[in-house]
């Protein structure tokens, strides 16, 4: 059952990429001159924006696992958190590659100038770089090697990454901050849940946070 659902969820997570590719290559994928037309007048911008959107969405989905499993009392959701987190990283890689390759065409000079001087790129870059250690240490082996507490502390970086992601979005829009604020509101709610849990002195959730679970570690 779980296995089956995991496959289903995995495939679902690839749907946004599939749709992007579908629209990018269009009805005549062998004819290179038609590439991108399905994504409108500026396909590069569309790719950059859609991959950015999905990076942020997967970060938020990942962060919603703990509140959802607690509030709905569905602990088994934890089994999907790593997958969602890795998909956030996956779409982040696509987003970053779009920027480096099709937007800047490997113009290292401009990329470095952007990372240092354009503050929205600086925070976006920070958000992305912070996800790298999390992706690397996402395996069971690494959880064991680091120990639950340290692993958990390290993986709190996802909060910083998500906050930086929202700030990145907020700073890159020219005037209309509606969408970044919507994402920001979702993130604020997800973080508020953690604050509430942490402030509640006799919180069951907190005491369970580091309790062993079937030989592995349950990390909230």
């Amino acid at each position: 059952m779980i296995r089956f659902i995991k496959i289903l969820v995995f495939v679902s997570c690839l749907v946004p990429l599939g749709l992007l590719a579908w629209r990018f290559f269009g009805a005549h994928p062998s004819d290179m001159s038609t590439w991108g037309a399905g994504l409108g007048a500026n396909p590069v911008e569309a790719l950059e924006h859609k991959t950015g959107d999905w990076t942020l969405r997967f970060l938020l989905i990942t962060l919603s696992i703990t509140p959802l499993r607690k509030l709905l009392r569905v602990p088994v959701l934890i089994k999907f958190r790593r997958m969602f987190g890795l998909f956030a990283f996956f779409y982040g890689c696509l987003h970053f590659s779009t920027y480096v390759w099709v937007d800047k065409f490997f113009n290292l000079h401009e990329i470095l100038a952007d990372v240092v001087k354009r503050k929205y790129i600086t925070v976006g870059f920070t958000a992305f770089v912070l996800l790298i250690p999390l992706a690397v240490t996402s395996t069971t082996g690494w959880i064991r090697r680091l120990g639950g507490k340290r692993w958990q502390a390290l993986h709190r970086l996802i909060y910083v990454s998500a906050i930086a992601g929202v700030i990145h979005y907020l700073w890159l829009v020219k005037a209309d901050i509606h969408e970044p604020l919507e994402y920001g509101a979702v993130l604020a709610a997800l973080l508020a849940y953690r604050v509430v849990v942490w402030l509640r002195p006799s919180s069951a959730m907190r005491s369970r946070a580091v309790a062993p679970m079937r030989g592995k570690v349950a990390i909230e």
Binding site: I61, S64, R73, V74, L77, F84
Partner: peptide, 29 residues
């Protein structure tokens, strides 16, 4: 209640809630 007691029961008895949770995630996506 020791968490070691809770976990397995939660894990294997709440299939319906679990599906609801998955459904919710799907809606978010």
């Amino acid at each position: 209640i020791p968490s070691s007691e809770i976990t397995p029961r939660d894990l294997y008895l709440n299939r319906r809630r679990f599906l609801a949770g998955i459904g919710l995630s799907a809606v978010v996506a």
